[in-house]
């Protein structure tokens, strides 16, 4: 049943109150909660509205939800250049603990899009996630980085954006609006997808059908296919990503989850 949820509560948490979070209380006392792990860089900005809509939908359905930003991203402390994969995992564990305290729910599921899905997987054990909902996780980090590099390099001569080509140095060491450190680049290159053991929902809206994800799915993984999401279309770089089908799929999954 859908009930109007209370307004979400913005706050800071974690060591030194450096992490930003938004807590969406459930519309009624609940035993279910979901942590929404954001994707990285421009994906975070493009999916902000969708994450909010998802959180509101779940809260109205009686599920407590928390959104948050990793260190160096969104409204959390730190510079974009300082984003560190290991810190993102530590932040996610801290966020899951914070959600348990606020919701009084010991059982926490996680949702993430793209690298947010990878963070959810990588932190699943320490954050004690009971269920993973993964939307287009990055299964081939090297290919993902190559795509980001290619899109970034194309910016140099993008005369729809700039009046004149820009020097190579001005586009270096960034991915689509965000500076990237050699450390983060290497951390992502080293990323290995380990198939989750526990209950997992994989929402697949990638264009690339040759994904190796199928080789990694465990028997406990349920897969849903959705229409293609234009993640890597340079002409849609600054357009929001919205998907009612995705929200519906996650809400249905959470309501069916024990």
């Amino acid at each position: 049943m859908m009930v109007e949820a209370e307004a979400e509560i913005p706050f800071h948490f974690g060591t030194g109150a450096k992490l930003f979070g938004l807590y969406h209380p459930a519309a009624a006392p609940t035993k279910k909660s979901v942590l929404l792990c954001p994707p990285f860089g421009q994906d975070l900005i493009r999916t902000h509205r969708l994450y909010r809509q998802l959180a509101q939908t779940l809260a109205a359905a009686g599920i407590a939800v928390m959104r948050f930003d990793y260190s160096g991203s969104g409204d959390s402390a730190g510079s974009s250049i300082d984003v560190d994969w290991n810190q993102c995992i530590a932040d996610t564990v801290a966020a899951a603990d914070e959600l348990r305290v606020r919701s009084h729910c010991e059982t926490v599921a996680a949702f993430g899009a793209r690298l947010g899905a990878n963070v959810a997987m990588a932190s699943a054990t320490h954050a004690r996630f009971a269920d993973l909902m993964l939307w287009d996780p990055i299964t081939n980090a090297a290919a993902h980085i190559a795509r980001l590099d290619a899109m970034q390099n194309a910016l140099q001569h993008d005369t729809n954006r700039f009046l004149k080509s820009r020097p190579a140095t001005s586009v270096a060491d960034q991915w689509l609006g965000f500076p990237v450190s050699p450390m983060l680049r290497q951390q992502l290159l080293d990323l290995r997808v380990v198939p989750p053991d526990g209950p997992t929902l994989l929402v697949d809206s990638r264009a690339d059908e040759s994904t190796v994800w199928n080789e990694h799915t465990a028997p406990s993984t349920k897969t849903i296919k959705l229409p293609r999401t234009p993640w890597d279309d340079p002409e849609r770089l600054e357009l929001a990503i919205l998907s009612h089908e995705l929200i519906q799929a996650i809400a249905t999954h959470m309501q069916e989850a024990r």
Binding site: D75, S79, F178
Partner: peptide
Amino acid sequence: GLVHRIGPFRLNVE
């Protein structure tokens, strides 16, 4: 525009 308060590419935060 429609970008939330952090601004395009986090411009408003910076």
